[in-house]
Amino acid sequence: RERTTFTRSQLEELEALFAKTQYPDVYAREEVALKINLPESRVQVWFKNRRAKCRQ
């Protein structure tokens, strides 16, 4: 699998949801995934990595 490159608009959507909740449920992830045209699994991994970045 190729590394996913997020567009600015995708990142804005993801960061907006992250500001609301660092642990979105599957419904919130699927909703944003549809909105930004990415698989839910990519959204899930983005949140995992974003939380790790936050802890550093």
Results as ranks from 00 to 15, higher is better:
48 K>T: 14
36 I>G: 03
47 F>K: 02
17 L>A: 05
48 K>R: 11
20 K>Y: 05
38 L>F: 06
7 T>G: 05
22 Q>T: 05
31 E>S: 12
21 T>H: 05
54 C>T: 11
5 T>V: 09
4 T>A: 12
28 A>H: 11
37 N>M: 06
41 S>Y: 08
40 E>T: 09
8 R>T: 10
23 Y>D: 14
29 R>Y: 06
8 R>K: 15
4 T>Y: 13
55 R>W: 04
2 E>W: 03
52 A>G: 11
52 A>K: 10
47 F>T: 00
32 V>M: 13
10 Q>C: 02
8 R>W: 09
45 V>R: 05
21 T>V: 07
33 A>T: 02
52 A>W: 06
3 R>A: 13
29 R>E: 02
24 P>F: 00
20 K>L: 09
13 E>S: 11
42 R>K: 15
16 A>C: 08
56 Q>T: 11
14 L>P: 01
2 E>P: 03
10 Q>Y: 02
13 E>P: 04
6 F>W: 08
7 T>S: 08
49 N>T: 11
17 L>T: 06
25 D>P: 07
37 N>A: 11
24 P>G: 00
41 S>P: 12
43 V>M: 15
19 A>Q: 09
26 V>C: 13
12 E>R: 13
52 A>H: 10
44 Q>N: 14
42 R>T: 11
6 F>H: 07
4 T>H: 14
31 E>C: 13
54 C>S: 15
32 V>Q: 02
52 A>F: 08
39 P>I: 06
45 V>A: 09
38 L>S: 08
44 Q>W: 07
31 E>W: 04
2 E>L: 05
44 Q>V: 13
49 N>H: 10
42 R>A: 14
8 R>D: 12
54 C>M: 09
7 T>L: 04
8 R>Y: 11
2 E>N: 11
34 L>S: 13
5 T>N: 15
20 K>E: 08
21 T>R: 04
4 T>Q: 08
15 E>I: 02
38 L>M: 13
12 E>S: 14
42 R>Y: 06
49 N>A: 09
25 D>W: 00
21 T>N: 12
47 F>H: 00
40 E>K: 07
33 A>V: 00
31 E>Y: 05
24 P>A: 02
15 E>L: 03
15 E>A: 03
26 V>D: 12
13 E>R: 06
21 T>E: 11
47 F>I: 05
55 R>K: 09
28 A>I: 08
48 K>M: 07
6 F>Q: 04
52 A>V: 09
28 A>V: 08
40 E>G: 05
20 K>F: 05
11 L>N: 06
19 A>V: 11
39 P>S: 09
14 L>F: 02
12 E>F: 11
2 E>V: 06
34 L>R: 15
20 K>S: 05
47 F>W: 02
27 Y>F: 15
32 V>C: 11
10 Q>L: 01
46 W>Q: 01
22 Q>D: 04
49 N>I: 05
11 L>M: 09
31 E>G: 07
13 E>H: 15
11 L>W: 05
13 E>I: 07
46 W>F: 06
32 V>W: 01
28 A>G: 04
9 S>V: 09
51 R>Y: 02
39 P>R: 05
31 E>H: 11
10 Q>M: 06
36 I>S: 05
19 A>C: 08
36 I>H: 03
27 Y>A: 15
7 T>R: 04
39 P>C: 08
1 R>L: 07
38 L>G: 03
40 E>S: 09
44 Q>R: 11
9 S>P: 10
53 K>S: 13
31 E>V: 10
35 K>W: 01
28 A>K: 13
26 V>A: 14
39 P>T: 13
27 Y>S: 15
24 P>E: 00
27 Y>C: 14
56 Q>S: 12
25 D>H: 04
19 A>F: 10
14 L>V: 01
50 R>E: 14
56 Q>A: 15
32 V>P: 00
